[in-house]
Amino acid sequence: MSLADRAIAGEVRAAARLMRIADDRTGDYIQEMVKIWAHTGHARIIGITGAPGSGKSTLTDALITHYRSLGKSVGVAAVDPSSPFSGGAILGDRIRMATHANDEGVFIRSVATRGHLGGLSVSAMDIAAIFDAMGKDIIIIETVGVGQDEVDISSLADTCIVVVMPGAGDDIQAIKAGILEVADIFVVNKADRDGADRTARDLKTMLELGAKRVWMPPVVKTIALKKSGIEELAEGIALHSNYSDNEDKHFARLYHAALGLLKDRLVNSCFTPDRFRELLKTQGDPYSVTIKWLKNHGLEA
């Protein structure tokens, strides 16, 4: 049996290995992923994003506990940044989810960005697809700690949660492009800290200033560490599913995975960095070198 068949049958080791070859783009990943993608479209995919230290992993942990209490199986892809210098990474999101390590209904995978911007890895949707094909009911994708403009997840998750902390900037920060449009649900985490009510109020005010939307993102206060506010958050997630166009989101995931593969294959098929650098050094301007390079490889510039 192929890795994909074994993963679809629920075998953890095969699924984990398949995630590896999809991430590395080695082995028979193409044939395997063709099978996997044919089995997707059933899980509910929740994205969690927010600034570093806002409590994304702890909130993920609390949501896992909640969904497990309802008997749902959960897959988690937790993304952390790769070092731009060494290419290595320390992936530490699991530390906050340690209580689920021996629960067979929970599969947590740490993923490094490997240079991809937008808060995810190129492989993130492939990994979610493998969870989906395994039959996981709920998939949580936790992005790297993001700032103001790294928000792939908003178009890819069925429901996107943005986590903020009390006192994290004034109301102008909130209306800058990015954060307000990204969230289907806002979470003000660490709500036992000073300024939580103020932050929640500011967010609500800013949301109301914007154009009327069919779905008005709720602002939920949580203390993830104490599992407080999680029921309300889960209610918000359930309610949002009536408003979210899940087919549209599923298509966005196909597109993300396809584009990632296309870029990789194109670059690998025609690009040799050393030779390109050499040309650029001797011929100077980036435009003519690139256009000539493309033409030499039979690609219309």
Partner: peptide, 21 residues
């Protein structure tokens, strides 16, 4: 940290893990 600096992906579990975990 030093394994990361050598270019490896390191998953860190945190404290007090059982062999099963």
């Amino acid at each position: 940290r030093s394994l990361r600096d050598a270019g490896f992906e390191v998953i860190y579990t945190g404290l007090r893990q059982t062999p099963e975990a």
